[in-house]
């Protein structure tokens, strides 16, 4: 989380309006409020996470993202963030469009299914990968869409979405050295900063 926060902090102006989709326990918004004094709102459906947000004093709205964001008007946020949840959405491409309608910019982070360890597990063991980023067995995973760094770039091109910045989180050898050269193979968590 800290690495993701470090990456996205420079992309979020102080005092801006931020919507965090699937905000979890509100940690990211809490940090953004503390550091950048943002006017932030989180959307969440998990009951425990909602309570955690209320404890922290984070603005949290109970809302199912699969129904879209039609209760928000166009461009009513400076940034819309979705961290580690796009792979759980029923219609990721639809939601991506919604995020860019509601916000001027959006930030997406997701686990890269193209990481070499995932590829190796499928190739050599013939099993669905279980990694630190994809930490579920196939039958219990909330992740219903698996995609790679490259897949996501292709989707952005197809939907005419501009990639303002890209960053990747990778820990351990050789990933930290090779992530810049072969991002699709060595990125563990991909971070995209987008606008239309």
């Amino acid at each position: 989380m800290d690495k993701i926060l470090d990456s996205i902090l420079p992309w979020i102006p102080s005092n801006s309006r931020v919507l965090d989709l699937a905000c979890g326990d509100g940690s990211l918004l809490e940090n953004l409020q503390r550091i950048h004094q943002v006017n932030g709102y989180g959307l969440e459906i998990d009951e425990k996470s909602i309570l955690e947000c209320i404890k922290k004093g984070i603005n949290v709205i109970e809302q199912d993202l699969d129904t879209g964001l039609n209760n928000f008007s166009d461009n009513c946020f400076d940034s819309v963030i979705m961290s580690q949840a796009l792979q759980e959405m029923r219609h990721p491409h639809f939601l991506l469009g919604e995020m860019l309608r509601v916000g001027r910019e959006c930030i997406i982070t997701f686990p890269n299914f193209g990481h070499w360890s995932a590829r190796c597990q499928l190739l050599f063991l013939g099993k669905m990968p279980v990694t630190r980023q994809l930490a579920y067995q196939w039958y219990e995973t909330p992740n219903i869409h698996f995609f790679t760094y490259r897949d996501f770039k292709i989707l952005c091109e197809a939907q005419k979405i501009r990639i303002l910045h890209y960053d990747c989180v990778a820990e351990g050898y050789p990933d930290v050295y090779l992530k810049k050269i072969f991002p699709n193979l060595f990125t563990q968590t991909a971070i995209f900063h987008l606008s239309l």
Partner: peptide, 19 residues
């Protein structure tokens, strides 16, 4: 209630909403 919360967010007010 969703209408109330929508108006509050548009106005920039702090709001928590649960159903």
């Amino acid at each position: 209630s969703r209408e109330i919360t929508k108006a509050l967010i548009t106005a920039g007010c702090d709001v928590t909403h649960a159903e």
